[in-house]
Write a protein that binds this DNA or RNA. Structure first.
Lengths: 226, 226
DNA sequence: CGACGAGTTGACGAAACTCAAGAGTCGTGG
DNA sequence: CCACGACTCTTGAGTTTCGTCAACTCGTCG
């Protein structure tokens, strides 16, 4: 694994508090594996034996309902792992995962981690930290879904992906709009209409590039009482 | 703490895999504390120094939005703990908690747990298991919120609280209907109307008691394609 | 008895979904 | 080089669902 990839993996909650020695021991000489777009990594109910860390590209976590309809739970990007807790505990996962772009994913051997889990407190704390971050994210998603209207959820998404809080900004959307729509709990049509409504707040969109005139305006939209 | 209370606490994910010795060491001689209804236990942003375990009664976990509106994230009942991960990691919690009935809650000292976390792998694994269960619950809630209509969410709630899958059943609702409504993401009015619609599926309601003629009928409602 | 809170019901409106058609992009192949 | 199809996104029209506001019922408790 080259230095750039290593740096990305080391930014994850699971590895960022470990020493180089600990890290080397856990990851060993494993390399990220390249997956094409649309590749099913695992399905809910399976017992997974590796902890996946996204090095590049995007992975969609979703649940399949009895009638075959699926719901996006989360979209995971570079420097993030997923299903750490279930894998470490040896439980079947409750979600399915598929790549939604070309992606390189490091598969960390679960057994090696599990054995360290029992002897090295840092590893256990790291695992807990990962889970904690996932919990926060889910709580945040749940809150947004329950309280915000479609345009506001879109505004929130833009604020989150831009990472700036003032002045003008420009982002390229990381993946398809229909995926974003599903992620934040709406149809593609509603997303499109919602974006159109945000034009009144200085948001223009050209293909997959979104320009925001003044981030302050977007934040006001989110924080104003109504 | 009497035997009955101890049994309840020992059923939690955090303690159910520990030996009696480990358990005694962690919990010590602490007793559940009695809280009246409507008591704020902590607020989001606070660093909490004890892990709360509900012995009896109900606690509402919620998030307060900037404009003062709050959203119920989860309602926690007997034999369940909450905010374990954040407390163990020494992070500020991302949620607030209040009692929604009279409640007895055991407050387990965080420092004692934290020190064991570093030396005793079982404790670390227990903490991870707790977090994992919370993750599952949140994912399940998110899925239901995104995919199910109001009547179906209510049906799902009934199925979950009844615990039976066939024949007739009767449950007393554990707390106010408006609370349930908020928990499953709807207004009290919609809950009421939704319950009325379920009458066509053999669900009758008298005050806070719900009678289901045939659980199979409810399950069919949830699983049929439409 | 009366006041209060929780729950129900009705009327209305807004928000978002569905279905369907059209516009723009991109890659492929003739 | 252009034409075609595949795909994504957008837009339009109609419908449904759900939230809001308000009135009313019914227990509970002072």
């Amino acid at each position: 694994m080259d230095a750039a990839d290593t740096a990305i993996v080391r930014r994850t909650m699971l590895f960022n508090r470990l020493t180089d020695a600990q890290f080397a021991e856990l990851v060993g000489s494993s390399h990220p594996h390249a997956y094409p777009k649309g590749c099913l990594l695992f399905q809910q109910g399976e017992v997974v034996e590796t902890i996946p860390i996204v090095v590049s590209g995007w992975v969609r976590l979703f649940r399949v309902h009895v009638d075959g309809v699926d719901t996006t739970v989360r979209i995971v990007g570079p420097a993030h792992g997923f299903v750490e807790a279930a894998v470490l505990l040896g439980r079947p996962t409750d979600i399915s995962a598929e790549t939604v772009s070309e992606a390189r994913i490091l598969m960390v051997d679960a057994d090696r981690l599990r054995s360290r889990l029992k002897t090295d407190a840092d590893v256990a704390i790291s695992a807990l930290a990962s889970a904690s971050v996932h919990l926060r994210n889910l709580v945040a998603d749940l809150e947004k879904l329950k309280t915000l209207s479609v345009p506001r959820r879109i505004a929130h998404f833009i604020v989150d992906t831009v990472g700036k809080t003032e002045g003008p900004a420009e982002v390229r959307l990381p993946y398809e709009k229909s995926l974003i729509a599903g992620h934040i709990g709406m149809t593609a049509e509603s997303f499109s209409r919602g974006l159109a409504k945000l034009r009144a707040h200085g948001v223009s969109t050209l293909r997959d590039v979104i320009r925001v005139e003044r981030m302050e305006a977007l934040l006001e939209l989110l924080y104003e009482t109504d």
